[in-house]
C-alpha cells in the first residue's frame, strides 16, 4: 500500500482552446511528502493543482491519486468520463485551499467547517460541531466560531478555509497560493498552520511564492515554467544551486 504514490502524474497535458497550459507534466508525490510547486505566473502550476482534484479535465497523459485515475474510469482498455456524482466522491478525499479563501460568506466560521461533513459525508451534527471546534482550535481561532467571514481578517479566513478542508479528513491537501492574497504581516500565521500540518504527516502540494517555507518545510521542490517541469529536487539544493537558466532567472527575482 505504501508503494503506491499519493499522486502520480505521467505526461499530464491540458489546453484551453489552442493555448497549451500543461505540456506533459511527469511527477510523483509520495505519501506524507510535502511538495512545493514554484514558478512564474502563467507557468501552469495552479492548473496542474486544479487537475489533481478534477476541477480541470486532463486532456492527455495519466493522473492518478492514491492509485485511482482522476476524472476517468478505465474499463476494457477504454477510458470513460466519470459521472458527476462519482467525480464528486473522488474530490471528498482531496482538500483544497484557494488563493482567495472562497469561504461561504453566508455561514459562520463553524458552519463553513461543518457544512461538508454533514451534507456530503452525513456526519451527525454533534460530531461535526465537536470536530469543527477542535479544528478551529488547531488553527488558533477557537473564539471565532460564530464570526462570519466578512468579520475575519484575510489570514483568519484562510485558516478557517484550511480547517474547512481538513474537516473532510482528506488524504491529500492542495494549496493554491494560500498566502498570495494576504497582507504581509498575516502570512506568518497561515504558514505556521501549514507547517504544523506538514509535521503531522499530511501529504501536501503547495503552489507558493514563499521560498522560505519551501526551504524549511518542503521535502521536494518543483520549478515549472511554460507548462513543463524545468527542474526539481531537494528544496535547499534547488534554491541554493539552481541548474537551469530559467530557474536561476526566476529565483534571482524572488529570493
Amino acid at each position: 500500500m505504501t508503494d503506491v504514490p499519493m499522486v502520480n502524474a505521467e505526461q499530464v497535458s491540458k489546453n484551453f482552446g489552442s493555448n497549451e497550459v500543461l505540456k506533459g507534466i511527469t511527477l510523483e508525490v509520495k505519501r506524507g511528502e510535502v511538495l512545493c510547486l514554484v514558478g512564474p505566473s502563467g507557468s501552469g502550476k495552479s492548473t496542474f493543482l486544479r487537475c489533481i482534484n478534477h476541477l480541470e479535465r486532463v486532456d492527455a497523459g495519466r493522473l492518478s491519486v492514491d492509485g485511482v485515475l482522476v476524472g476517468y474510469e478505465e474499463r476494457d482498455d477504454k477510458l470513460y468520463e466519470l459521472k458527476p456524482n462519482v467525480a464528486a466522491r473522488q474530490r471528498r478525499d482531496i482538500g483544497m485551499v484557494f488563493q482567495r479563501f472562497n469561504l461561504f460568506p453566508h455561514m459562520t466560521a463553524l458552519e463553513n467547517i461543518i457544512e461538508a461533513p454533514m451534507k456530503v459525508k452525513g456526519t451527525a451534527k454533534a460530531a461535526a460541531v465537536a470536530r469543527g471546534k477542535e479544528l478551529l482550535d488547531r488553527v488558533g481561532l477557537a473564539e471565532k466560531a460564530d464570526a462570519y467571514p466578512a468579520h475575519l481578517s484575510g489570514g483568519q479566513q484562510q485558516r478557517v478555509a484550511i480547517a474547512r478542508a481538513l474537516a473532510m479528513d482528506p488524504k491529500l491537501m492542495l494549496f493554491d497560493e494560500p498566502t498570495s492574497a494576504l497582507d504581509p504581516e498575516l502570512v506568518g500565521d497561515v504558514l505556521e498552520v501549514m507547517k504544523q500540518l506538514a509535521a503531522s504527516g499530511m501529504t501536501m502540494i503547495v503552489v507558493t511564492h514563499e521560498m522560505g517555507f519551501a526551504r524549511e518545510v518542503a521535502d521536494s521542490l518543483v520549478f515549472m515554467d511554460g507548462g513543463v517541469v524545468v527542474e526539481s529536487g531537494d528544496p535547499a539544493e534547488v534554491l541554493a544551486n539552481p541548474q537551469h537558466q530559467r530557474t536561476k532567472a526566476f529565483l534571482s527575482k524572488v529570493l
Binding site: 474530490r91 484557494f98 461561504f104 473532510m168
Partner: peptide, 16 residues
C-alpha cells in the same frame, strides 16, 4: 464562481 469551486472541492454535487 469561487464559491461553486470551493463547494465542488469539498465533494458537493451540483444540486447540493
Amino acid at each position: 464562481p469561487g464559491q461553486t469551486e470551493a463547494s465542488k472541492a469539498l465533494g458537493m454535487g451540483w444540486s447540493q
